[in-house]
Amino acid sequence: MNDVIVSESCAVTLLGGGKVNLKDLREALRLAPSLVAADGGATFAMENGFAPVAVIGDMDSIPVRIRADVPVGRFHEVSDQDSTDFDKALRNIDAPLILGVGFLGRRVDHQLANFNVLARRFDRRCILVGKHDVVFAAPCELELPLAPLSRVSLFPMAPVSGRSRGLNWEIDGLDMTPNGVIGTSNHVRAGHGGPVSLAFDRPGMLVIVPRASLNLAISALERATPFSPAR
């Protein structure tokens, strides 16, 4: 991958400027030890003793006192005003996995914008971690080894059709769209003994599962069949 700012062989934790739980950040760093901050996320990082390897964004949310504490070579200003700081950071990280902390909760408009980016940058293996949920863009084919009755919500950010095995309400034959049929509040069928299998005809579906399923989601994405990279 060319022209990226951060290239890592290990997983990366991307810290946003939204509401951050210190416990969530520490857990993310245990799983993805390289820390990158998206603009204002640098403030939380530095105030809590974490030093990001890079800060990426338009730099309009970082106080002067924080700028002074971050080595100059770690600031990477991306001045384009047509994209969010999450987008600026995500498209400039090359890593096998990105865990996003500080992108869910607080402001609904920011959260919706982050979902938009997650769906558009589907070729980045990225999971957003929140207090109650983890969210990621569905790959072409995925198997989630969730327990029966576990919540599995599907929300299309574009027209998407798919197939499933193991859900209480299977999605086969459904044409799902943001302003039409969606798949929230679904769950693993009672008595289902294997992984939930999902397959989609095109990118654009978001998968939302409980926060406790983060490790399962990571393992599932590692084994998943991806879509061809975005152009």
Rank of each mutant, 00 (worst) to 15 (best):
G41I: 07
V20F: 10
R231L: 15
R107P: 10
D60S: 03
L112H: 05
L31G: 04
H192N: 06
R106K: 15
A220Q: 10
I171K: 09
P195R: 04
G17F: 10
R189H: 14
P210T: 08
L154W: 02
L35D: 06
A45E: 02
M46R: 08
R151L: 14
P145Y: 02
L174N: 01
I56V: 03
V55R: 00
T184Y: 04
S150E: 12
L214Q: 04
D69L: 15
L216R: 13
I171E: 11
G183S: 09
I171M: 08
R189E: 14
S185E: 14
V181R: 10
D94I: 05
L198T: 02
S61N: 03
G130Y: 04
S161R: 13
A199V: 13
P52F: 05
G102E: 11
M46F: 09
G105Y: 04
W169G: 12
G57W: 01
D85I: 06
R151H: 09
L128M: 05
P96R: 03
L206Q: 01
E27R: 07
N186H: 12
P139S: 01
E8F: 03
V209S: 12
R106Q: 15
V188K: 13
R125F: 07
F155G: 06
L90M: 06
F155M: 04
F200V: 07
R121I: 06
A224T: 05
D133N: 01
L35T: 06
L174H: 09
M1D: 14
G204E: 00
R67S: 13
R151N: 13
G18N: 04
I218W: 04
D80E: 11
R124L: 01
M205N: 03
P229I: 00
S161D: 14
C140T: 14
F155H: 01
V36Q: 05
L142F: 11
A38Q: 11
G173K: 12
T225H: 07
L31A: 05
D58C: 09
M59F: 15
M1L: 11
G49N: 05
N179P: 13
V36F: 08
R151D: 15
R121E: 12
I62M: 05
H76K: 03
V4R: 07
T43D: 12
A137L: 03
P156K: 00
D123S: 02
R74T: 08
L15I: 08
L14T: 01
H132M: 13
A11R: 04
V160S: 01
G183H: 02
H110M: 07
L22C: 12
R189M: 14
R67G: 13
F44V: 09
A147Y: 10
P145G: 01
V117C: 00
D24G: 07
G102A: 08
A158W: 08
D39H: 02
A224H: 08
T184H: 10
R91T: 02
A37M: 09
V70T: 05
I56Q: 00
A217V: 04
V135Q: 03
A230M: 06
R124Y: 00
L144Q: 01
